[in-house]
Design a protein around this nucleic acid. Structure first.
Length: 490
RNA sequence: GGCGGCAUAGCCAAGUGGUAAGGCAGAGGUCUGCAAAACCUCUAUUCCCCAGUUCGAGUCUGGGUGCCGCCUCCA
């Protein structure tokens, strides 16, 4: 099966062909660390984490680079407001970034290059752009001359004339074209600065990604992504810089952009002030619920956030988790063993789910459809579970193990159900298992006693035990095969 | 003003021109001592509206309407 991806540059779905067979090089625009990440920030990283997981599932060796823009006005402003240096702010929020993204089970990129760590590369790139006539120096600032780059506007689909006409900002008279953008900004008093051939200053916003992607991935790498608000001007400018620098294109083969998270149908952003911090959401919901919520919509579509939607996502995720519980229970149960037509049907369902899942993901990473495949398999598992619990079919241990493996494997591509597989806590996806052997033993004992009460038709005692355990967060389920307890889902 | 995107049930949401996935919520049923869980059935004669192309359109074309985004920092 071939992977097809929607390329923002061509505005079409295209078959994915890597530059080098078997390898994928991807660069994802990271955050400017000046505040705690909000959930709008979380979407691209969950999305790219799944993209990477799926590519690795397809046996590609993935090289994943994601930057931190640690030299920036917003950081400088935050630092001045607090009376600390810029690096204190950047370090603090880089830590904050990792703290929540780790909880969301986002695998770390192979490298997180920073602007401050790549001044030499950035300056060298600017020097060449000047030497080649694509940039000019004015009073210690360096600007990129958009008119020198014939393809300017090809990503965002706009022409220089359109932009000149629609310019809403006061034009700096020193620029030769209103859309020319800064490659290097001369230092103003009190700002952090670095030495350069044009005097002390700091890089413009866009040049870092051109310089760092070139260093770590080379020219013409496979995937470049980020939020769709980065299409213009950020990515447009990156193309202009990198293709001018390299003397040709393409800078990037496939551009992928995720849609926004909205609140009341409006874009969630720090500047609008309508954002929810990830850490605050995680105080009320398990991280996996947020992750599931994000993946329940195709990455290019807008995703409206609300408490109700998140709760609904949680209930949908519970269904997937319940199927895991049922499989685990069957695997550990003592009911009669042996194969059956039902177990054959279950194995067939698992094989079908694998194929359907891949087909969904091959179609531009359709996670919403992939989740529905998982729901379909969950249903098959539950049908089998019901049949076993009703005493209609024996348990086929090998079938269960095989289906469980398939289920976990698919869930893992989405980065879900990690706690179920690892036996960890749902509070931190992927956390170390909590080994508490006493509580299960006690619960087994209590359930056993309750079964004796039930055998004597002492319903009052049986119900009291069930009610009291319910208050403690444990659910009792009776069946012809006996009673089982489980911890109530969050 | 320029450029782009989206409109599918009560809610979320997928959908390759061939007769509307999945989830949540809701109703009924099976099972159960009662529950719970699970399962079964039902819940869009129809995909914003109007034309057109086609044997056939949620899917293509044109025109409306509404919403959103980018054009300024933004994932």
């Amino acid at each position: 099966m071939t992977l097809r991806v929607y390329n923002s540059l061509t505005k079409k779905k295209e078959e994915f062909v890597p530059v080098e067979p078997g390898k994928v090089k991807m660069y994802v625009c990271g955050v400017t660390p000046y505040n705690h990440p909000h959930i709008g920030n979380a979407r691209p990283f969950v999305t790219w984490d799944v993209i990477r997981r799926y590519l690795e599932h397809k046996d590609y060796a993935v090289r994943h680079i994601q930057n931190f823009t640690d030299v920036d006005d917003k950081i400088i402003n935050a630092a001045n407001a607090e009376g600390v240096t810029w690096d204190i702010i950047a370090d603090r929020y880089i830590k904050a970034y990792f703290e929540v993204m780790d909880k969301l089970n986002i695998r770390r990129a192979h490298l997180y290059p920073t602007v401050s760590g790549h001044m030499a590369e950035i300056i060298a790139m600017i020097e060449k752009l000047i030497a080649d006539g694509y940039a000019y120096v004015v009073d210690g600032d360096v600007y990129y001359s958009v008119e020198k780059f014939a393809d300017y506007g090809k990503l965002s689909g706009r022409s220089l004339d359109d932009m000149k006409a629609g310019a809403r900002v006061d034009v700096d008279e020193r620029k030769s074209h209103p859309m020319d953008f800064a490659l290097w900004k001369s230092a103003k008093p009190g700002e952090p600065s670095w030495e350069s051939p044009w005097g002390p200053g700091r890089p413009g916003w866009h040049i870092e990604c051109s310089a760092m992607s070139a260093k770590y991935l080379g020219h013409g790498f496979d995937f470049h992504g980020g939020g769709s608000d980065l299409v213009f001007p950020h990515h447009e400018n990156e193309i202009a810089q990198s293709e001018a620098f390299a003397g040709g294109g393409p800078f990037v083969r496939y551009w992928l952009h995720n849609g926004f998270i909205t609140v009341n149908e409006e874009k969630m952003s720090k500047s609008l002030g309508n954002f929810f911090l990830v850490k605050d959401i995680l105080a009320h919901y398990p991280p996996e619920v947020l992750r599931f919520f994000i993946l329940s919509t195709h990455y290019r579509s807008p995703l409206n956030f609300s408490d109700e939607q998140l709760a609904e996502a949680g209930r949908g995720l519970d269904r997937l988790r319940a199927a895991v519980d049922n499989m685990k229970y069957l695997a550990g149960t003592t009911v009669a063993r042996g194969g059956s037509d039902a177990s054959q049907a279950l194995l067939a369902a698992a094989a079908r789910a694998r194929a359907d899942f891949d087909a969904a993901m091959d179609d531009d990473f359709n996670t919403a459809l992939a989740i529905s495949v998982l729901h379909g398999l969950a249903k098959e598992i539950n049908i089998y579970y019901s049949a076993v619990m009703a005493g209609k079919v024996p348990v086929a241990g090998e079938a269960i193990a095989s289906v469980q493996a398939a289920y976990y494997e698919l869930a893992d591509i989405l980065g879900l159900l990690v706690a179920e597989r690892m036996g960890g806590s749902p509070d931190v996806v992927g956390a170390a298992p909590v080994q508490d052997t006493t509580a299960p033993a006690l619960l087994d004992l209590i359930v056993e006693i309750r079964q004796e009460a039930r055998a004597k038709k002492d319903w009052a005692t049986a119900d009291r035990i069930r009610d009291r355990l319910g208050e403690l967060g444990y659910v009792i389920e009776d069946s012809p095969q006996g009673a089982r307890w489980k911890k109530r889902e969050v």
